[in-house]
Simulated assay, not measured.
Amino acid sequence: MTTHHPTIRRLVYGHAQLHDCLAFADADTAAEEAEEIKALAAARTWGEARQVQMTHLWNPAGPECYEPEDGYPDDRPFKINDVGSVMEGDWPRMVTERAFELLPEDLQDRFGKRHFTAHNGDYLEIPIDHESELVAELREHGYEVTRDDELINVLDGRSFNPLAG
């Protein structure tokens, strides 16, 4: 029986502003996920927000969370920061948490430090100054790695988050 290796071999990474460290995402889906986040943030009414199609993420303004009869009619103006799971920091999930799934454990241990947050779970803090060494190691492990700071921060909700400074 062969050992199963993760099929994710293409990574995008960048400087995540919120935690001031490096963060990684699956390069095959990251751009599409970012578009889903932007689409929801751009919705002008609750009706529009409810209809944003999500392939990779869940829709925190969707009908399973907010019903028109509960005071969220389709024509009510929509602000993404009024959504409970967005305010609580649960959506989108922290981009710095993805490293646990994407990076080989030995590299997580060598380059990163697990941090606990009271509300949103753990994330891996990878100091910026480890960038060149970690990227080189990943390439040796057969990963294709590209840097895109803007994409990483969109995935982290920086484009609309009230905490974005």
Rank of each mutant, 00 (worst) to 15 (best):
D148R: 15
E150C: 03
S159H: 10
N120W: 03
Y123V: 02
F116R: 13
L134Q: 10
L138G: 09
E144F: 06
I126N: 00
H141I: 01
D129C: 04
R158Q: 15
R139S: 11
E140D: 14
I152M: 02
L151A: 13
P162F: 07
E137F: 01
I126L: 01
I128Q: 02
V145D: 01
S159D: 10
L138W: 03
I126Y: 00
F160Y: 14
A118G: 06
E137W: 03
G142V: 05
H130K: 15
N161V: 03
L155G: 12
S159F: 04
P162Y: 06
R158N: 14
D129G: 05
P127F: 00
E140Q: 15
F116T: 13
E133P: 09
A118F: 00
D122K: 02
F116W: 06
F116N: 11
T117Q: 10
H141M: 06
P162E: 11
H130D: 03
D156I: 06
P127E: 00
S132P: 11
L155S: 14
L134Y: 08
G121C: 04
R158L: 12
L134F: 05
D156S: 09
R139A: 13
L151D: 07
I126G: 01
N161G: 12
L124W: 01
D149S: 10
V145K: 00
G157F: 10
P162L: 13
T146P: 04
H141E: 11
H119S: 15
L151F: 11
N161P: 03
E131R: 13
Y123Q: 06
P162C: 03
E125G: 06
G142A: 03
F116D: 13
I126T: 01
H119C: 14
E140P: 02
E140V: 09
H130V: 00
